[in-house]
Every structure is written in C-alpha cells, then in structure tokens.
Nucleic acid binder design. Structure first.
Lengths: 228, 228
DNA sequence: TAATTGAATTTTGCATGCAAAATTCATTAT
DNA sequence: ATAATGAATTTTGCATGCAAAATTCAATTA
C-alpha cells in the first residue's frame, strides 16, 4: 500500500521511492546534503518532482530542510528512537487487538507458521533468518489489524523500517532467545482471538524493547563519559 | 508547532494553512473540486506552492487527488471517523501517560483549572463553552505529554480537529454531563502523577466516545433503511 | 428532443527560466 | 601564513511555459 500518489505512476512517487531507498540503503548518508540538480538528472527527471519528494520525506523526518540551503539526510536522535518504539507500542498494540478481532481461519494458520523453524529449547543461531521473520511477523499483524489511517501512519513515518537504525549488524534490537517467547505469546493470543491479551502482549513486547534501548543508550553515554 | 516548513514563511506553508482553514471553515465543501488557477490568484501566489499544499493535504486525507482530474475536498466515511477515535484512544492515552510523568507543578495548577466553571451537581447548559474547554483540555495534555513524532502525527492527520465532523451543532460528540466526570478523572490522575491511571482514564474516555459514535451510526443506518 | 461527434477551451503534470540568496574562490591586506 | 573582502558561481524558491489529457460546448444526426 503506497502512501502518496496511490498507484498512478507519477514522477513525485517515483522520486520519493527512489530517494527513500537510497537513504535506507545508505547510499545517502546522514548529514549529507542532497544535490538536487545532480540527483534529478540521474533519475532522468527535473527538479520539480524531486523537490516534491524531498518535501514528503521532510514530513516523515527522513530529511531535513534548511531554508535556502537545501535538504540534508537526517540522523535520528536517541530520544526520537525511543519515541518511535513508544509509538509502535501503542499503534501495533491497537493493530494486534484489531487483528485478533478480524483474523480469518486461514490467516491464523499462516500466523502460526511464523518462527516454526526455531525449536523451543534450542538457542537460535540463524539471526539473519530470525530478523527477517521478525519484520514479516510485525507486518503480517499490522496488515490484518490496521484500518484506515493506522497503516499510513506506520508507513508514512517510516516507523517500522526505521526503527531498525539502533540495530546490530543482524538487524535485531534484542537477542532472539529473548523475543521469541514474546512473539509466541502474541501468536497464541491472536490465534485464540483474545483481543485484550493480544494488545497486552504486543505492548509488553515493545515495552521491553524500549527499556532495552534506553539501557543501551545509557551504557553508551557512560562509555563516552569514561573515554573523555 | 507547525508541521511542514517549521517557521520560515514559505509560500507552501502559507497555502497549506489557508486551504486547511477553508476546509475546516466549510468555505470549501466536501466533494467540491479545488480550482487551482483561481485559488492561486486569490492567494496571490502561483500554482506551484498551491499544488504543493494540496499534496500535503492529500497525505492528511483532507483532499483527494484524482490523477489528471484535480483535487477534491474529501468527506470522511463512518469507518474512518471511528478509526480516528480509535487512534486518538491509543495516542492520547500515551500522551496522558507521558504527561503524568512529565507535568510540572505550575502545569498541574493550570490543568486543575479546566472545567471549574461547571459545578458538580448542576446540569451543564453552556455547551459552547464546554466544547471549547474540551478541545483546549485535550490540546493541553497532548502538548505536555507529546514527544517527538506524536504531536506531528496528531496534527498532520488532523485527528484532533477533524474528529469534530461527527459532531452536533455545539461541537460535541457526547453530552457534557456524561463526559465531565471522565475529564475530571483524567485531571485527577495526571495531577497525582499516576501515569498508568492517566492512560487508563484517557483510553476509557475515548472508548466510550467510540462506542457512542458506533451506536449513532447504527441508528442512522437503521433510519435510512426504514425510510427506503 | 435526445444522443453523438468533434473542435475549442481549460486544466493538469512537469520542465524550464529567473531573481535572490548562499557558497565558493581568488585577490588583497594584515 | 592567515584573515578579510568581494566578485563569480551555484543553488534555491517560485513563476511561467508547454504538451498531453480532460472537459466543455456547439453542431450534427437520429
């Protein structure tokens, strides 16, 4: 579900998607100035749709406009990273609640299929696969539970994908052995169509992640203090 | 806190604000086509910033773009109206929780000043005043509690102001005698800096409003059914 | 009279032009 | 050598131009 010009392939949308990818793929780095003329000609378009795309990305906080000085790729602050997870807590909590209310039998089967590759007692070694399933899992639930506005908020603010900026190389915030139990609890609650518990479990999942990030940031700061 | 080009008065922002007001003030009516050339010259600007503003409003769902056919003022569907209140439930719930954690002594005094004009036992007759305080009340709490992203989401999606489309002439969804107790419970929880209760009370407040709207819509539909 | 066709007009989507602001770079002064 | 000045260049913010698409409207036909 694209979030600006729906489907009709206009150049704004095209530029928007491309630049967004360039930022997520780290082709454009935080702090870097975005060269309008250059990028436009690279994309084979004029400055007009390029600038439109940048204006959208500005609203999503992916770039920063410095008036009369151009657009710069933005770096999220620790406070913002925490905010993103606090928002995901309540928004995905809502999505989980609604998913439990709306889910079909077929979708329950697919939901139960997540994380089956990882057996209960054993330590999880394939963190790459786990990370991938993690994202798909959250997306699956929000796709089912999200109604008007919710999905576009989660997408427009790039909350889901950009949450993954605090992550380790494997693309995970917390170790899989810790999160898999929470994921299973969410799957269980939604499968039983228990809306209240589903929301509760999703929120608990994010609360723990938020706490983890806060602790990590505190540790980092202490480290920096010590180094100076 | 404006939500596009921060403060530096650019024409995009100016057009954005003006059109938004024209929609809220019902100078532009739902379904109506927005005449670009005409509006631009009325605002004394060219089509460029005007169209930019429309693109932003499209993302906020206030207008709808029909490719190659122009922009139209949008009408919210009943399903969307309900979604808006469900989102406010979780978002303002989060804001209330954070407000309880962050609020200063001076702010507590101001918070306690809300709805003091309405005495406990008596029926509320000045619905206009109540409606105004209602909005200010919610805004006060979100201003205190909102962190990065939250305020811009609440604003960008126009959730607060546009929730007031289902309203009666007085600008209220539910009768004041019903909501004032809930408002007082929220004030109380935040003043006691009880974050959990504050969130709980705010959510309960919205849950009831959502239920009320759903009931009203169901009644309206039954009415229409009967008429045909 | 109502429906159909097509030419004239309007409007959209995007590129380009242009002045004002910002930046760069060479020159001069300290 | 570093700092200060200002001219040349680049870049931004917005208006305007233009082709393609859509709409309007008059003329024609059924």
């Amino acid at each position: 579900m694209p979030n600006i010009g729906e489907q009709h392939a206009n150049l704004d949308q095209q530029a928007y998607t491309t630049i967004k990818e360039m930022i997520t793929d780290r082709q454009l780095l935080p702090g870097e100035k975005i060269p309008q003329e250059k990028l436009a000609s690279e994309l084979g378009i004029s400055r007009t749709p390029l600038v439109n795309a940048l204006k959208f990305l500005e609203k999503e906080k992916l770039v920063e406009a410095k008036p009369r000085r151009g657009y710069y790729v933005r770096l999220f602050t620790p406070a913002e990273m925490i905010s993103i997870f606090e928002l995901r807590e309540v928004l995905e909590g809502l999505a989980a609640r609604r998913a439990a209310e709306k889910i079909s039998d077929a979708q329950i089967e697919r939901l139960k299929g997540f994380f089956t590759g990882f057996s209960a007692g054993e330590a999880i070694t394939d963190t790459h696969l786990y990370s991938q399933q993690d994202r798909e899992f959250h997306r699956f639930i929000t796709d089912i539970g999200a109604m008007e506005f919710l999905s576009s908020i989660l997408q427009a603010y790039n909350i889901i994908s950009f949450s993954y900026q605090v992550l380790g190389a494997d693309g995970l915030v917390r170790p899989p052995d810790e999160t898999i139990l929470e994921h299973r609890a969410i799957i269980d609650a939604i499968s039983r169509r228990n809306a209240t518990t589903a929301e509760e479990m999703m929120r608990r999942h994010f609360k723990r992640t938020t706490a983890y990030i806060k602790a990590q940031l505190a540790a980092e700061q202490a480290e920096q203090q010590r180094a100076s």
